[in-house]
Simulated scan of single mutants.
Amino acid sequence: MRYNSKRDLWLGLLIWLPITSGFLMSVYSAFITKEAITPFIVFTVILSFIAWIWFGTYYVLKETYIIVRCGPFRERIEFADIKSMKETRNALSSYALSLDRIQIKYRKFGYSLISPINKEDFIKEIEKKSSIKIVRRE
Rank of each mutant, 00 (worst) to 15 (best):
E127C: 11
N118M: 00
I66P: 12
L13A: 07
I132K: 07
S98C: 15
K105R: 14
L24W: 14
S26W: 10
T20N: 08
K62V: 01
V60N: 10
E138M: 04
Y95N: 11
K83I: 15
L17M: 14
I19N: 08
D8G: 11
P72G: 12
S112F: 03
K133Y: 02
V135N: 09
K62H: 14
V68F: 04
S94T: 05
W52H: 13
F49T: 01
P72E: 03
F109A: 10
K133D: 00
P116W: 00
W54N: 03
L9M: 13
R89W: 03
F40S: 13
E78Q: 12
L97V: 02
K6D: 04
I134F: 08
W16P: 01
F40L: 15
Y65I: 00
F79Q: 03
V42T: 05
L47I: 14
I50N: 05
L11C: 06
I104N: 10
K128E: 01
F73I: 11
L13Y: 05
M85Y: 01
F109Y: 05
K128G: 00
D121M: 10
R69Y: 03
T57F: 01
E120W: 05
E75W: 12
V60M: 05
R69P: 04
I66R: 03
G71P: 06
I15Q: 03
V45T: 14
S112L: 11
I114E: 01
S48V: 14
S94W: 06
S26M: 06
Y3P: 01
E138Q: 08
V42I: 13
W16A: 10
W10T: 04
E125H: 02
I104Y: 09
W16D: 02
L13R: 02
F79K: 04
T44H: 14
F55A: 03
I53K: 07
T20G: 15
I132E: 07
L92H: 12
R7C: 02
Y65H: 13
V60Q: 07
D8S: 15
E87M: 06
I50M: 12
A96T: 13
F122H: 05
P18Y: 15
L14P: 08
S131Y: 07
T38C: 04
Y106H: 08
R89N: 13
T20S: 15
R137S: 14
L113T: 07
E127Y: 05
I117M: 09
V45Y: 13
I123H: 03
I15G: 04
Y111C: 10
R76P: 01
I123E: 03
D8V: 02
Y65G: 01
V27E: 05
I117T: 14
K105M: 12
R89H: 13
I114V: 11
I123T: 06
V135F: 11
V68H: 04
P39M: 08
I117C: 09
K108R: 13
R76S: 12
K6L: 04
F43M: 11
M25W: 06
F109Q: 08
P39V: 09
Y58S: 00
S131K: 13
K124I: 04
A30S: 15
V60T: 14
E125K: 09
R74N: 12
N118G: 00
R101K: 12
D8T: 06
L92Q: 09
E87V: 03
G71K: 01
R74M: 12
A91P: 12
L11T: 11
R69C: 06
M85W: 02
K133S: 01
G22R: 02
Y28G: 07
D8Q: 10
A91S: 09
I123L: 03
G22Q: 05
Y95C: 11
M85L: 02
E125R: 06
